[in-house]
């Protein structure tokens, strides 16, 4: 039993990271119908920015929480700028023209970010400082590291924040309205381009947070981590019903758990097969994901 709980704890932690990244996919897909392939790689970049601040600039010597807060903040600012840049340069000109062309520029952006990171940070693994991973508590045979409890809590807070933003503010409501009808939103005086840019910033902030936490939690990062992470996160978003914000959160946690159980009880070799198998089965039974999709019907 305790081993089951242990897997659950591990799965929830990884799942929380997936959920944060999945939210980025789902927000952007929801309003412009784009599978933003560069989003996983943006998370990777976020992780490297955090590493730069902590290691290269030496902020790891500051008090732990201040150091982490500064690293996260820097990472959020830089990834936001990058993401809005990507939007303006690579996606915006194609927005009302060809969905396939944007998909290709997104793939191109993914390759671009990976290779940019490769150039700047090298092909090898970079080590994050062990700031929060060293200790933890045992509860009935289950080890919960401080990192797990802290990061899980932070992730939940961020998700709750995003959810409240989307749910209770007028701007957030406008974002959800874009998922239904762009023209009708324009007729309400909503500056659609600006709201899209805000969505890209939100996605970047969540990605940066996930990136820095992933670095601190797994303590090793490389330029390629965005691919697998993006894949899992995108799978989560689709599983929960793409465009659906609570769906992406739930999807992330479910994927994290599935993966953890599969690796624990079956074999790590099969976890991707297992995860995709579940996804495909769900989509065949319920083509709009577990919680239903919320996407724009017209562009």
């Amino acid at each position: 039993m305790s081993i089951f709980i242990q897997y659950t704890v591990n799965g929830l932690t990884a799942g929380a990271f997936y959920a944060l990244v999945a939210l980025g996919y789902t927000i952007i897909y929801g309003i412009i119908r784009l599978i933003n392939f560069a989003h996983g790689d943006l998370t990777m970049v976020g992780s490297f920015i955090g590493w730069t601040v902590l290691v290269s600039m030496g902020l790891q010597r500051l008090p732990v929480f201040l150091a982490i807060a500064l690293a996260a903040l820097a990472s959020m600012v830089v990834t936001s700028v990058i993401n809005v840049g990507i939007l303006q340069f690579a996606y915006k000109p194609l927005l009302n023209k060809s969905l396939l062309a944007i998909l290709i520029t997104a793939l191109g952006m993914s390759i671009f970010l990976q290779n940019a990171a490769l150039l700047v940070f090298g092909a090898g693994v970079q080590a994050y400082p062990h700031l929060v991973t060293s200790s933890g508590v045992f509860i009935g045979g289950v080890r919960i590291s401080y990192a797990q409890s802290i990061f899980f809590t932070i992730s939940l807070v961020l998700m709750a924040g995003l959810y409240s933003f989307a749910r209770f503010t007028t701007l957030g409501t406008a974002m959800r309205a874009l998922a239904v009808d762009h023209d009708a939103a324009r007729l309400m005086g909503i500056n659609v381009n600006r709201v899209i840019a805000i969505a890209f910033i939100l996605a970047a902030i969540l990605a940066a947070a996930a990136g820095v936490m992933i670095g601190l939690y797994y303590t090793q990062i490389n330029f390629f981590l965005g691919f697998l992470l993006g894949l899992r996160a995108f799978t989560s978003a689709v599983l929960g019903g793409i465009g659906n914000i609570p769906g992406a959160m739930a999807g992330g946690l479910v994927i994290g758990l599935l993966e953890s159980y599969c690796a624990g009880y079956l074999s790590g070799r099969w976890q991707d097969v297992f995860v995709f198998g579940v996804l495909i089965t769900v989509l065949i039974i319920k083509p709009t994901g577990l919680f239903g999709e919320r996407v724009a019907e017209r562009m």
């Binding site: 690579a90 194609l94 191109g108 671009f112 290779n115 490769l118 150039l119």
Partner: peptide, 21 residues
């Protein structure tokens, strides 16, 4: 060398921007 895929990706995006079809 290492920058080649970076440039490749950039060119790819430019092709799409200028000739979306």
């Amino acid at each position: 060398q290492n920058a080649r895929f970076l440039i490749f990706a950039a060119l790819l995006i430019l092709i799409m921007l200028f000739r979306p079809g």
